[in-house]
Every structure is written in C-alpha cells, then in structure tokens.
C-alpha cells in the first residue's frame, strides 16, 4: 500500500483481470471487470490512508464495486456477478485470515481474537454493501444506452 496510486491501480487491475479469467467470465467482460477491480482497490486505499479506518474503506469500495457491476450488467446484458466478483475479491480479508491462524498457532489469544473479529467485520461489511446496492431498483442503473446483445 506504499506505492503511488497509479501503480496500485495497475496491479489491482491485473489481479482482477486474473480472477475474471479464473472464473471464466465472458471474454468481452474481462477487461471491464478488471477496471472495476482496480478502481475499487484505489478507493479502498485512499479512504484507508485518509481516515485510518480499514472497515470504512472496504465498505465504500464494495459499494462502488457493486454499483459498477450493476451499471455494466445493464450495459453489456450480462449477469452482474460477472463484474461484481473480480471487483470484490481484492477486498476479501485474506491477510486477516492468515493472521488469525498465526495467532492460533502461537497461542496468542489477543491477536487471534482481534484478527478474527476484523475478518468477520470486513466480510460482513462487504455483504452489507452488496445488499444495499442490490436492493435499489434496477432502473437506477439503467443509464445510457444498452449495447446490442451478441446475437
């Protein structure tokens, strides 16, 4: 998280693009979902560095990723998961999971508890952000013109 933002954007873009390929997203959608993932990560890092509140950063970034996915699912006529998943995955608490396990191994109850709580908080916040965006009516995201379906 110490690199300049544009480098982080590129790295997060590459990672999200990779996830889009691993999950076999439709080929035309891969690039777009990579862009979404890059922006979501940059938003998270920006808010985290400004406020030093990791959960808030994850929340706003997940809100962005969910809104992005709904907007582009309308434009490209694809299921929204195609765009949502690669955008959200960089935010999933992988490192907290590792540190929870490390705490258990070292019998460090304090670290275990702290990291486990953080992992649950982050996962819950991602879920809540997705729910908030997906509760909104579809028409809110039907902006601009729709691309022609492939057939």
């Amino acid at each position: 998280m110490t690199q300049p933002y544009y480098i982080q954007f590129v790295l997060a873009f590459l990672a999200s693009l990779g996830f889009a390929v691993v999950f076999n997203c439709p080929k035309k959608a891969c690039f777009t979902s990579g862009i979404g993932g890059g922006f979501a990560w940059v938003i998270y890092v920006y808010i985290y560095l400004k406020t030093m509140n990791e959960v808030l950063g994850i929340f706003v970034a997940s809100l962005f990723a969910a809104a992005f996915s709904r907007f582009f699912s309308y434009r490209h006529m694809e299921p929204s998961t195609v765009f949502l998943l690669p955008g959200v995955i960089p935010l999933v608490p992988g490192s907290t999971m590792y540190h929870t396990m490390k705490g258990i191994l070292d019998s460090n109850i304090f670290e275990t508890f702290m990291e486990a709580t953080k992992a649950l908080k982050v996962a819950g916040v991602i879920a809540i952000a997705i729910m908030i965006v997906f509760v909104l009516p579809y028409s809110y995201f039907a902006i601009g013109k729709q691309k022609k379906p492939r057939f």
Partner: peptide
C-alpha cells in the same frame, strides 16, 4: 479465498 461464496451468500 472464498470471495465468490461471500458475494453469492450476500445476494
């Protein structure tokens, strides 16, 4: 990491 399961569970 189970990102897919988390997103789909939320939905």
């Amino acid at each position: 990491v189970p990102g897919f399961a988390i997103t789909n569970a939320a939905k």
